[in-house]
Design a protein around this nucleic acid. Structure first.
Length: 470
DNA sequence: TCTGGGGTCCTAGGACCC
DNA sequence: TCTGGGGTCCTAGGACCC
C-alpha cells in the first residue's frame, strides 16, 4: 500500500439523521419530537431515527416494533418519502460539486470530497473555516438541514472524524494524529469490520483497533483470507490510500420484497415474482441496461437465504425474459415451509442487448443439448470463443422472425421459448419432460414443426417435484 | 412481533480450455 | 491415457455498507 497522504485532504460529509430531518423540516409539528422513518409494517425496520428518538434507544436497522416499544407515545412513525430525500440530497451534492471537482457520492446522505485541487489553507484552522462555510451553504440551500464533516488524510479517518462530533460538527484529524485517534476505538471503527468480523476478533480477545494493530499479518490472513486479512492489517495502522472516485459503473440491479407473513402457496409466489421482475425490468429500461445473469433470492421462514442464478446467452432488458428465467430458477427451490422474502436480480450488465453473446462458450448449454447441435450462427461461425462478425450479432435478435424470449411450440418437443435466434437456426429452450435428451435444441428457422405459441399458463410443479426440478 | 432494500466485493469449487 | 498448471466463466454463499 502506498504511503499515507501527508496532508488532510479527504472530507467525509454525513447529513445528520437525514430522513428524519427532512420530515421535521417539512412538517413543523414534528420538530422537537421523536421521529422514526422506515418500514411501518410488522416486519419493518428503522431507516433513520431523529436525535429525539435516539435518546430512547431507537436506531437505524432496528426492527420498527422494537423502536415502538422504546419510544414514548407521540413518537411519529413515518414511511419514507424517498423522492423528497433525493431532491434535498441533489441540492447538497450540487453544492459539494461546487466546492470540489472530486466528489464521490456514497449514498443519498453521504459523500467524500478530495481537496487536492481546491485552493484551501489546509491548516486545521483553515480547514475548519472552509467546512463552516460549506455547512452554512448547505443549511441555507436546504431549509436548515445539518451535516457533519470529517477532514483527514484518508477516507477511513475522514469518516471516523465525521462521526465524532455529530450533529453539525467539524472534526479535523491532522496528519500524524491518526494512530492516536484510532487506537482506543472499537474494531468496528475499521472499514470492513462488521458484526461477524468483530465477533471473531472478540473471540481472540481483540477489542480495540490498538489490539488489532498488534496482530500479525500472517495471523490475520490465516483467519480472514488474503484480501480481508491484509486490509485489516493496513487499516489498523491507518494506512488507507483508497482514492475518492467520482463515477462508478453499475454492476447489478435487483428488486426484492419481504412479505408481511410467510408465503407458502406457489401460485401466490409466482404472482409476486411477476411483480418484482416487472419492477426490475422497468428500472433496467430506465437505466438503458441489459443483463445476462438472472438471480432469484429466496429467504425462508427461518431466515436462511438461498440464491439461484442462471446466465442467458444474451443480455436482455425484457420483463418477460427475466421473469421466465426467474420462474425456472424458483421452480428449483423448495418453498413448502414458507417464504419470507423473494427477490430478483440481474447482473452481467451490458449497454446493448446481445452484446455478450459472442463470447458464449458451449458450456453455457447448461441443459445438455444434444451433441453436435450447432449454435445458431454466432457461435457456430468459428471455434468456441471466436467472435463472429459484429454485424451478424447485432441482428440476431429478430432474424428469421424469431424473437428471444418468444413462446413457441414444437410438434415433437412441446412448448418452449426462444433462447437465441440466428440467421440459419433458432435455439429453443424446453421446460417440459417431453424433450429428451436435454431442454435446449436448435432448429432451422423454417422448421415446419415449430410455430409461435401463446404464453403458457405457468405450470406449477407437482408437490414433491420442486426440489428435484433442476 | 426478531431481523428492509439496494448495492459491492470476496471466496471457493467445478467446468472447461489451452 | 494418469498427469499438470493457469486462466476464465459460472454458481452459491457470506460479509459488509448505507
Amino acid at each position: 500500500m502506498a504511503p499515507v497522504r501527508s496532508r488532510a485532504r479527504v472530507v467525509h460529509l454525513d447529513l445528520d439523521a437525514f430522513f428524519a430531518a427532512v420530515e421535521q423540516r417539512d412538517k413543523p409539528s414534528l420538530r422537537g419530537r421523536p421521529v422514526v422513518v422506515g418500514g411501518i409494517g410488522a416486519r419493518g425496520v428503522v431507516s433513520t431515527a431523529s436525535y429525539e428518538a435516539r435518546r430512547y434507544g431507537a436506531r437505524s436497522a432496528m426492527p420498527t416494533h422494537e423502536a415502538r416499544r422504546l419510544c414514548p407515545p407521540g413518537t411519529a412513525f413515518l414511511h419514507g418519502r424517498y423522492d423528497a430525500y433525493r431532491a434535498s440530497s441533489a441540492v447538497v451534492m450540487e453544492l459539494l460539486h461546487e466546492a470540489s471537482p472530486l466528489v464521490q457520492q456514497v449514498s443519498v446522505d453521504e459523500a467524500y470530497l478530495d481537496l487536492t485541487d481546491v485552493g484551501v489553507d489546509d491548516s486545521p484552522e483553515g480547514l475548519r473555516a472552509w467546512g463552516e462555510e460549506l455547512l452554512q451553504r448547505i443549511r441555507a440551500a436546504t431549509g436548515g438541514l445539518t451535516a457533519s464533516l470529517g477532514i483527514a488524510t484518508s477516507k477511513m479517518m475522514a469518516k471516523i472524524g465525521s462521526e465524532m462530533h455529530k450533529p453539525g460538527g467539524i472534526t479535523v484529524i491532522p496528519p500524524g494524529q491518526e494512530q492516536a485517534v484510532l487506537e482506543p476505538l472499537p474494531t468496528r471503527a475499521v472499514a470492513g469490520v462488521g458484526p461477524a468480523t468483530a465477533a471473531r476478533l472478540h473471540s481472540f480477545g481483540v477489542e480495540t483497533v490498538g489490539d488489532l494493530a498488534r496482530v500479525s499479518l500472517e495471523d490475520l490472513v490465516a483467519i480472514f483470507g488474503q484480501a480481508h486479512g491484509r486490509g485489516l492489517y493496513e487499516l489498523a495502522r491507518a494506512r488507507d490510500d483508497r482514492p475518492v472516485t467520482p463515477e462508478r459503473e453499475t454492476k447489478s440491479l435487483s428488486a426484492e420484497e419481504t412479505f408481511p407473513t410467510d408465503v407458502t402457496d406457489r401460485r401466490a409466489l409466482e404472482a409476486e415474482l411477476e411483480q418484482i421482475a416487472g419492477r426490475l425490468a422497468a428500472r433496467l429500461g430506465r437505466a438503458a441496461l441489459f443483463g445476462r445473469t438472472v438471480t432469484v433470492k429466496v429467504r425462508l421462514h427461518d431466515f436462511t437465504t438461498m440464491t439461484r442464478s442462471g446466465t442467458l446467452p444474451y443480455a436482455t432488458g425484457e420483463a418477460q425474459v427475466v421473469l421466465r428465467e426467474a420462474r425456472r430458477l424458483l421452480a428449483g427451490v423448495d418453498v413448502s415451509a414458507g417464504v419470507r422474502l423473494l427477490g430478483v436480480g440481474v447482473s452481467g450488465l451490458a449497454q446493448h442487448a446481445q452484446e455478450e453473446l459472442v463470447r458464449l462458450p458451449e458450456s453455457a448449454w447448461t441443459g445438455g443439448a444434444a451433441a453436435g447441435d450447432p449454435w445458431p450462427d454466432a457461435v457456430g461461425a468459428g471455434d468456441a470463443g471466436t467472435a463472429p462478425e459484429a454485424s451478424s450479432v447485432t441482428t440476431l435478435h429478430q432474424d428469421g422472425g424469431w424473437r428471444t424470449g418468444q413462446d413457441v411450440e414444437h410438434a415433437e418437443h412441446g412448448r418452449g421459448w426462444v433462447w437465441g435466434a440466428g440467421r440459419r437456426l433458432v435455439t429453443v429452450r424446453f421446460e417440459g419432460p417431453l424433450t429428451p435428451p436435454g431442454p435446449i435444441r436448435s432448429f432451422a428457422l423454417d422448421d415446419p414443426r415449430l410455430r409461435p405459441a401463446d404464453p403458457p399458463e405457468w405450470r406449477l410443479p407437482e408437490s414433491g417435484e420442486a426440489a428435484g426440478a433442476c
